[in-house]
């Protein structure tokens, strides 16, 4: 499905600020896999996402999606089959446009040069999709997105990112900016949607419990490298303590309480 071959990303190459953000990363993700990614700040998680989505081009290496080389494909072209969600709930939606206008854009799948307005049938489809969010947004198609709460906006962004059934879904700490209750609601929603459409998904999280609860595999990153990819069998028997132990033993960082902050105490 997704194959990353020997990908390295170096920022500010040749200057004193040179930083190896990704170092010879090799990984293969299977169709339908839901992988959670953990690692401390600066481990290269977001850079990995940016490289997959095309926001950053790799210094060396190749990226394949469904056996197609996408290493040099432009970012907006990749977005037709890669859905993305960010930490900031304000990033995924256009505030002064209505819910239906926002959804219509994500339904386009790259075919924007159409001089047709939204049809009644499409509006009906949007209503059906919005119902699944259980936020009563289906009756508010004409509402400006800017007046919605952060949680509502992130749920809508999630729906938009998955509306056109992307081949790959990238979630970059998409619940980190929400309050705990809303965060767990949005995560549950994410899990539902991913399971229903059997979407191949990568999710970055700083919450060990979430990393264990959701998805089939866990990827551990450090210093631009993938240290481990824990498979389904092994993950089943893993506890938060076990995961932290695994993490610290592999990263040789024993100050885990500082490193993992409050998440570990949870």
């Amino acid at each position: 499905m997704l194959e990353i071959q020997d990908v390295s990303v170096v920022f500010h190459q040749g200057t004193i600020h040179e930083k190896m953000a990704l170092s010879h990363v090799n990984v293969k993700i299977n169709q339908g896999d839901f992988v959670t990614i953990i690692g401390s700040n600066g481990a290269g998680k977001s850079t990995l996402f940016q490289t997959i989505s095309g926001a950053v081009s790799p210094t060396s290496g190749k990226i394949f999606l469904k056996n197609q080389d996408i290493t040099h494909l432009k970012e907006y072209k990749r977005s037709r089959f890669i859905g993305r969600l960010f930490q900031n709930p304000l990033m995924g939606t256009a505030p002064s446009m209505t819910i239906e206008e926002n959804l219509a854009l994500s339904a386009c799948q790259g075919h924007y040069f159409r001089l047709k307005p939204i049809t009644h049938q499409q509006r009906q489809q949007m209503r059906e999709a919005l119902k699944e969010l259980n936020l009563n947004l289906e009756d508010r198609l004409e509402t400006k997105v800017g007046v919605l709460s952060g949680g509502q906006r992130q749920a809508l962004s999630l729906l938009m990112a998955t509306y056109a059934k992307p081949q790959l879904l990238l979630l970059d700490e998409h619940t980190a900016a929400l309050d705990p209750q809303t965060a767990s609601k949005v995560l549950k929603l994410t899990d539902d949607i991913v399971k229903r459409h059997q979407m191949t998904t990568l999710m970055i999280t700083h919450n060990m419990e979430d990393a264990l609860r959701y998805g089939q595999k866990i990827m551990i990153m450090k210093d631009g490298k993938i240290l481990d990819l824990i498979d389904e069998e092994k993950k089943k028997n893993l506890t938060v303590e076990g995961l932290i132990e695994l993490y610290t033993s592999q990263t040789h960082e024993y100050n885990d309480r500082i490193l993992l902050r409050n998440e570990a105490v949870l």
Binding site: A55, E75, Y76, S79, M91, G92, A94, S106
Partner: peptide
């Protein structure tokens, strides 16, 4: 948002 979407 547009940068991360399929709009050029």
């Amino acid at each position: 948002m547009v940068k991360a979407s399929s709009i050029d």
